[in-house]
């Protein structure tokens, strides 16, 4: 069979492209190598266990986990609506949902202030009701949800589209209710995208900086997450900033490994 013949030929990119590709990898990896090289290992334990660093780490983990949970609650229905429901302007809606991915986070922070700030579109009414969001941990979580929700939606849309609607159509035609079809067919179909998407959402929330500093402010234990702490440490103690940066890189690396490792297992 001709198919088996073509399968035997290994697919290789031109050698010159591989050389440029290695250069591309260096562009990404070299700064991280330098970061690791720049850490003073003898000072590292003390730098990472300062009260300010521990507060920032604790706050970052708490808020990122909360934001990820909120993203799951909102993101699964949103992805389903965008892929499984026919409505006018659907393609426009799908593009608009991606906006936080492409606008600079500081713009996101300004937009959030315009919406939920004390004089904002919604915030104005919340203020009358005695609800204040700015300068609270809630504001941090909102900023994180805003920037990371598209990651989850994109991952879920990918899963839903590659798997198609056939399985769900079968379940519905056999008399299963939409709710039961969602639980027993659609949700398992989403699983690979759900895992990878959740992990990436968490990672993006953990790294959120611009929208947080603009919308939530910066106060130890309340709003000063790890990236904000790194930014502030840089002012006086660049070594501490490097040490905290390394911590963020390690957490991010763990998260990516988890996402990619799992994804490969589930797909193959």
């Amino acid at each position: 069979m001709p198919a088996s013949v073509t399968r035997d030929v290994p697919v290789r990119p031109p050698r010159a492209l591989t050389v440029v590709g290695v250069l591309g990898a260096a562009v990404i990896l070299l700064p991280f190598v330098a970061l690791v090289a720049g850490v003073d290992l003898t000072r590292l334990p003390r730098l990472l266990t300062s009260p300010a660093a521990l507060d920032a780490l604790g706050l970052s983990l708490r808020t990122s986990l909360t934001a990820t949970a909120v993203c799951l609650v909102l993101g699964i229905p949103l992805a389903l609506t965008l892929t499984r429901l026919e409505f006018p302007g659907r393609s426009v809606a799908r593009s608009l949902v991606l906006l936080p991915l492409v606008v600079p986070p500081v713009v996101g922070g300004i937009a959030l202030t315009e919406a939920f700030g004390r004089r904002g579109l919604v915030g104005e009414h919340l203020h009358v009701l005695g609800i204040e969001i700015a300068f609270t941990t809630t504001a941090v979580v909102m900023a994180q949800v805003f920037v990371s929700l598209p990651f989850l939606v994109v991952a879920l849309e990918g899963s839903l589209q590659t798997r198609g609607e056939a399985h769900e159509r079968t379940a519905l035609s056999l008399g299963a209710s939409p709710a039961r079809t969602f639980r027993t067919v659609t949700l398992p179909l989403m699983a690979p995208g759900l895992l990878a998407g959740t992990v990436l959402t968490f990672a993006r929330a953990l790294g959120e900086f611009g929208a947080t500093i603009t919308f939530a402010g910066s106060m130890q234990g309340t709003t000063r997450t790890l990236p904000l702490q790194v930014y502030l440490e840089r002012e006086t103690d660049s070594e501490a900033a490097v040490a905290l940066s390394l911590l963020l890189v390690v957490v991010a690396l763990a998260v990516i490994t988890l996402a990619y490792g799992r994804k490969r297992v589930t797909i193959s």
């Binding site: 300068f135 500093i213 402010g217 910066s218 106060m219 709003t223 002012e235």
Partner: peptide, 9 residues
């Protein structure tokens, strides 16, 4: 309620 990194913030 907030300690900013710069006076412009």
């Amino acid at each position: 309620v907030s300690e900013e990194s710069s006076v412009t913030d």
